[in-house]
Design a protein around this nucleic acid. Structure first.
Length: 514
RNA sequence: GCCAAGGUGGCAGAGUCCGGCCUAACGCAGCGGCCUGCAGAGCCGCCCAUCGUCGGUUCAAAUCCGACCCUUGGCUCCA
């Protein structure tokens, strides 16, 4: 089945056709000037699942995700800590943090994480090309893109140059030819008032200026938009397949990227533009500047990666989503349901061997249906919520199978006793191969594609602690057999207080660490 | 003002591209039953929707067309 995506360039659903052997994906990454928040992580996670799906679908994916490490906001924080002596020091600090969070969220590694500061020569080359082609001009050491020189200006955002011109104040134009022209290169360092605007501490009489580089137009810094064009072309190609970014970047950032890139190469910059919806709290977007954010660090600490991912995967990438404690609680329920079903399937599988003769056709059909429905959903513009529903239907089939079967082979006659347990009527042994396939489905679709980590936080037998819990449960089982329920319940409560969740079942107690 | 996205049950959120299988998915919350010594989990079932408003097209509309109302995002810090 073919993959179709909603292309924000054309505002239409289109069949996805890659241009070459490799699918070239560029993700508009983070400006590393502050702690990233859950809004950023939503983009990362959706971009992650999209590339994981392409990979799973058999494409070779080259995934580039940049770090913007040259920015006024970063420069403004120089000196805030003793070790932050330069703009690069601040950037380095945040980049290493972000990489740690990305790992924490179980994001698959991108192929390359390029940084602006390492691509100044490419940026200068691109600016020179634009000047030579008559699309850009120099003024007092700065270089601007002339929006009137590019016929398609506005294709992505549907903005008209005239409208943009009309809203600009006449004196706002300054040294630019048109108010809508944007900087490719800015002369000199960061101005003191820009530093003051973004600084979180008082710089006194000696504000930092940020780093500057030598260029044909004198010392200066690259403009905001040119970096993505330069890095996309350097690490991917003049024409890439998919460009992913947040909805708030459509204008001006992505519009300007298209203008400068296509003006320079004469080629289409990106064939498919995917824009992710923004995360909101209390009906406004979560953003650093509004101060209403929940950091990735805090969220990882409080909820863990699987709950966070489940939360994001309960809406489509293009929709906006509202963050709330209630929504996170729901995500937690959803995730635990999946996880419990997976754990139970693994336990059941361990309790029978591959010679078991049960074949539960319902379970096996459910596995096939899950693959089919999941694939159809993901191919339908990465409809992760529908795909999650497919996984949910698998848990239902697995749980039903587990309810109706036991670990004892059907050589036992109904009503027979095995140890303290009685074989319920009409029960047969687990379907080993059916369960195996269900487990593999959880691992491939839930694990490989959705990046959920089954098993890692739930393994019961983790060293000494696990052994001790086993021991306690043996004692408790003896109590239960003797009818000493009061003590058994006390022990279960005490274990729960310690974060060990005990559940009794036909096959004896199971437990897991919270 | 200009541009874009959206308005579906208590909450959340698919379905809208390609009209009929939508008497509206998967969930969360709530209720009942089964199971269990109990609890939890699980299973089965139930409750809650004139699909923003008005009009049009059609044998048939949540889905197409028009108008209007409301919300959110962008309009050179933004994922």
């Amino acid at each position: 089945m073919a993959l179709s995506v909603t292309n924000s360039l054309t505002d239409e659903r289109e069949e996805f056709e890659p241009t070459g052997e490799e699918v070239l994906v560029y993700v508009c990454g983070l400006t590393v000037s502050d702690d990233p928040h859950l809004g950023h992580a939503r983009l990362w996670t959706h971009a992650d699942v999209i590339t994981r799906w392409l990979d799973y679908a058999g494409y070779d994916v080259r995934h580039v995700e940049n770090f913007t490490d040259v920015n006024e906001k970063i420069a403004a924080r120089v000196g805030e800590r003793p070790e932050w002596e330069t703009e690069a020091d601040v950037a380095r600090h945040y980049i290493s943090q972000v990489i740690e969070y990305m790992r924490g969220l179980n994001l698959a590694r991108a192929t390359v994480y390029p940084r602006v500061s390492e691509h100044i020569p490419e940026i200068i080359d691109l600016v020179e090309t634009l000047i030579d082609a008559g699309h850009a001009y120099e003024a007092n050491g700065s270089v601007y893109f002339d929006v009137t020189s590019f016929n398609d200006y506005g294709v992505l955002s549907n903005q008209q140059i005239d409208d943009l011109e009309a809203q600009g104040e006449p004196d706002e134009r300054g040294e630019k030819r048109n108010a809508a022209d944007f900087a490719l290169w800015k002369a000199g360092g960061v101005a003191p008032d820009a530093i003051a605007e973004h600084a979180k501490h008082d710089h006194g009489d000696d504000p930092p200026t940020g780093q500057t580089w030598e260029s044909p137009w004198g010392e200066g810094r690259p403009g905001w938009h040119i970096e993505c064009s330069a890095m996309s072309m350097t690490h991917l190609a003049d024409t890439i397949d998919i460009h992913i970014g947040g909805h708030d970047l459509v204008f001006p950032h992505h519009e300007n990227e298209i203008a400068q890139s296509e003006a320079a190469t004469g080629q289409r910059f990106a064939n498919y533009w995917l824009h992710t919806g923004l995360l909101e709290t209390d009906d406004e977007k979560m953003s650093s500047s509004l101060g209403n954010f929940f950091t990735v660090e805090a969220a990882l600490d409080e909820y863990g990666p699987n709950v966070i991912r489940t939360f994001y995967l309960s809406t489509e990438y293009g929709s906006k989503q509202t963050f709330s404690k209630e929504a996170m609680a729901e995500a937690e329920e959803r995730w635990e349901r999946l996880q419990r079903s997976y754990d139970a399937a693994v336990d059941a599988c361990d309790s029978v061997d591959s010679t078991a003769k049960t074949e539960d056709s319902e379970l096996r059909a459910a596995v096939d249906d899950t693959h089919e429905a999941f694939t159809a959903a993901m191919n339908d513009d990465f409809n992760v919520r529908e795909a999650m529903a497919a996984l949910r239907s698998l848990t239902k089939a697995v749980n039903r199978h587990l309810d109706d079967h036991t670990s004892y082979d059907d050589q036992f006659i109904d009503g027979d006793s095995v140890g303290p347990y009685t074989i319920p009527d009409s029960h047969t042994a687990y379907d080993y191969h059916g369960l195996k396939r269900a487990i593999e489905t959880f691992e491939s679709l839930g694990g490989e594609v959705f990046g959920l980590q089954f098993g890692t936080e739930t393994d019961g037998d983790v060293g000494l602690a696990g052994d001790l819990v086993e021991l306690l449960l043996d004692v408790r089982e003896a109590d239960r057999e003797a009818g000493n329920y009061e003590r058994a319940d006390e022990l279960r409560d005490s274990l729960a207080d310690l974060g060990v969740e005990v559940q009794d079942s036909d096959d004896g107690p199971t437990f897991r660490f919270e």
